[in-house]
Nucleic acid binder design. Structure first.
Lengths: 220, 220
DNA sequence: GTATACGGTTCTACATGTAAAATGTAATAG
DNA sequence: CTATTACATTTTACATGTAGAACCGTATAC
């Protein structure tokens, strides 16, 4: 015999990687925070080996960055990074859909139709949480339309990065931009007792946030 | 102080990864061959830890595949895989060039011009070796035109895979196709003393090989 | 105050140890 | 001959050991 295809003992490294990825995407491990091997090893109750391995895999996935001899940090993304990631996503997803048009099976299309049906309901009842879920799923299906595993892999790598990057940049918009230029403008308007202008600045501010976050809700 | 940006002690794992990658791309480690940690560890004269780590990084780069609890093998690519890889490369490189048209600096364009000049000479003197080098460089420059590091990273990941996949498929074309259908046809023609037909079959055969390998030489 | 030097502590990167799984091999049954 | 089992060997995945680098706090010089 040569092939013993089935075997599925779960490995510690996979569990750890999953746990860390979830923690990063849910923000429980903040961007820029150090991923300390000894500490995580203690917290998770496993030895350092699988923790180190899992962390390096997250680096390969682009969710963390390695500083040789200085440790690994949770990736920090700025607005520029979001733009870059989305340029690549756009290129890949557009290509995937274009190829997929000629390759999609009856089942592929049916799955998409069903998903949109569900999404329509969620829009009606303002179910933001659920909407994001189905939206994620929808994009995942679009990516698999091409029936090209290489395409799916690259799109998949960018998906998690997008999530993280958008949360980061949302924060950086909310904190940096609001914290500076616009706060100053609002204060100036208030000082001048110009309520109309202050309101206008605040509106513009929210519009910018919405413009950036809009992608998070609709584009992914 | 907070940032001590410069520090460059070379790590064993980087050396090992480089050595293994070169060995794979040069065919010294054949597709499907097992990357045995203890054996490579002995051969390279380092302990098992950095070897294991380097191997896992090659998996992340797509140059090797992992079979949990059974080891890691040098990636094997078929014609289908080549097609998939090139679909993604096309999507990314086209997008990169499109974006790059609006972003390329004077220096970017000058570098491309100079490279093409060099390449023209190589074509004239039939310098295949050199041509492949400059061609690789040319595509690399095209990828960097977008000034998008995410784009460059994904294109870079696909570049090595392409090289490996094309060598594999070249072999599979040469061996499988020639080994079967066409060999049979040629033999049949020879048996019939039909030299003209045998020659024609052989020509078609080479044309197919050239069509596939053409990408390797021109498309990269 | 800022900058530099020192010393203890922690961590990274690599080395080594080891239980359990996988693999190879020979003996045996069909 | 092929298939199965039993046993020895090797390997993987995880655990642990450790030298030297990085970090951190304090002290000292400027």
């Amino acid at each position: 015999m040569e092939l013993n295809l089935i075997q599925n003992q779960t490995r510690v490294v996979d569990t750890v990687r999953g746990a860390l990825r979830d923690a990063i995407l849910e923000g429980r491990l903040a961007p820029g925070q150090k991923l300390s091997v000894p500490e995580l090893s203690r917290q998770l109750g496993v030895s350092r080996s699988p923790v180190r391995e899992a962390i390096l895999q997250l680096v390969a996935e682009g969710l963390a960055v390695e500083l040789p001899r200085r440790g690994v940090l949770v990736a920090e993304f700025g607005l520029q990074d979001v733009a870059h990631i989305f340029e690549v996503r756009e290129a890949l997803e557009v290509a995937s859909v274009r190829l997929g048009a000629g390759r999609a099976t009856r089942d592929d299309l049916e799955a998409l139709r069903k998903l949109l049906e569900e999404q329509a309901l969620q829009v009606k009842r303002n179910d933001l949480e659920g909407y994001q879920q189905t939206d994620l799923h929808f994009h995942k299906l679009l990516g698999s339309l091409s029936h090209n595993p290489v395409m799916e892999r690259h799109i998949g790598l960018l998906k998690d990065q997008s999530r993280l990057a958008l949360e980061n940049s949302a924060r950086s918009i909310a904190q940096l931009e609001r914290g500076h230029a616009e706060h100053v403008e609002i204060l100036a308007a208030l000082k001048a007792r110009d309520g109309e202008r202050a309101a206008e600045v605040l509106l513009r501010h929210f519009e910018r946030i919405r413009a950036s976050l809009g992608d998070w809700l609709s584009g992914r």
